Amino acid sequence: MSVPTLTLNDGIKIPQLGLGVWKMEDAETPRIIRNALDAGYRHIDTAAAYGNEAGVGRGVADSDVAREDIFVTSKLWNDRQGYDETKRAFDETLDKLGFDYLDLYLIHWPMPARDKYVETWRAMIELRDAGRIRAIGVSNFLPDHLERLIEETGEAPAINQIELHPRFQQADQRAAHEKLGITTECWSPLGQGEALANPILTEIAARHGVSAAQVTLRWQIQLGLVTIPKSANHERMRENIDVFDFELSEHEMAQIKQIDTAAGRIGPNPATADF
């Protein structure tokens, strides 16, 4: 099964659907990665804070898929922001993964109260320009954070990974990304399972003979987003990637839009988060 790609603003192509590995134990991660690659995944999303970069690297190394055919993302944790510290943290990430380069590196949270994300971004630009990272981006950044990065460095992130699921659709944030030429990527794309019981989604799913999770992921694909559902279960993994042989109608897309609610956020607010 071939997953379509999107082209980022720097010309790098990213598979539109990948596997998130948040909360996966490092010792179990190599097996999970091998299963995902066997199922057709070519995009893996990890982070320093997940504690499983080494497991991801082992899974990639032990697979039959060439390294250059696998798109791997990792993220800089909050306590490592700052110009020099970012470069040290990236060295540690690359060492744990066992890679010569990383496909995508993100600032995990803006932490505006600490005011280090611009100097962090400058370090990441240098790492990319040195050929150690193919693409650089951010996660959980609000429009004012993005605009400041661009204004002070002249460089827009290739991607912003944000919480996005049917109950929290982030239309204004997506519009800001489009205006700035930044690709939107969804974390918690299934709303930590909340989507699976929504009657609108289950009705659409029954109509197509698929699951509510597949409807949700297909909705994100048709919006032109990158999505990274998490599952350690092999069958669920295969189900999540099997979303390219059906299409939602305009009416169904409009139905899903109705699920959005201001109270839908699950994670921290990036404007005030500091951890």
Rank of each mutant, 00 (worst) to 15 (best):
K116H: 12
Y117V: 05
Y117G: 02
Y117N: 04
Y117I: 06
T120S: 15
R122F: 11
A123R: 13
A123T: 09
A123P: 11
M124I: 10
I125S: 08
I125K: 09
I125A: 08
E126N: 04
L127E: 04
R128Q: 15
R128T: 09
D129M: 08
D129K: 13
D129Q: 14
D129E: 15
A130K: 00
G131W: 14
R132M: 13
R132L: 15
I133K: 01
R134F: 13
R134A: 11
R134N: 10
I136G: 05
I136H: 10
I136L: 08
I136Y: 11
G137M: 05
G137A: 04
G137W: 04
S139G: 06
N140T: 08
N140K: 07
F141W: 12
L142M: 15
L142C: 07
P143K: 08
P143T: 11
D144G: 01
D144C: 02
H145R: 07
H145P: 07
H145K: 03
H145F: 12
L146N: 11
L146A: 10
L149N: 02
L149S: 01
T153C: 05
G154A: 05
A156P: 06
P157V: 02
P157L: 02
P157D: 04
P157I: 02
A158Q: 00
I159K: 02
I159D: 06
N160D: 15
N160F: 08
Q161L: 12
Q161H: 08
Q161T: 10
Q161I: 11
I162K: 05
I162V: 15
I162F: 08
E163I: 11
E163M: 10
L164C: 14
L164M: 12
L164Q: 08
H165I: 02
H165T: 05
P166R: 01
P166D: 01
R167E: 14
F168M: 10
F168A: 11
Q169E: 09
Q170N: 06
A171E: 14
D172F: 00
D172T: 09
Q173D: 13
Q173C: 06
Q173S: 10
Q173E: 14
Q173R: 12
R174K: 13
R174W: 01
R174H: 07
A175F: 10
A175V: 07
A175W: 11
H177E: 04
H177D: 10
H177S: 05
E178F: 00
K179P: 00
L180I: 06
I182A: 00
T184H: 01
T184A: 14
E185S: 13
E185D: 07
C186N: 14
P189S: 03
P189K: 04
G191E: 03
G191M: 04
Q192F: 04
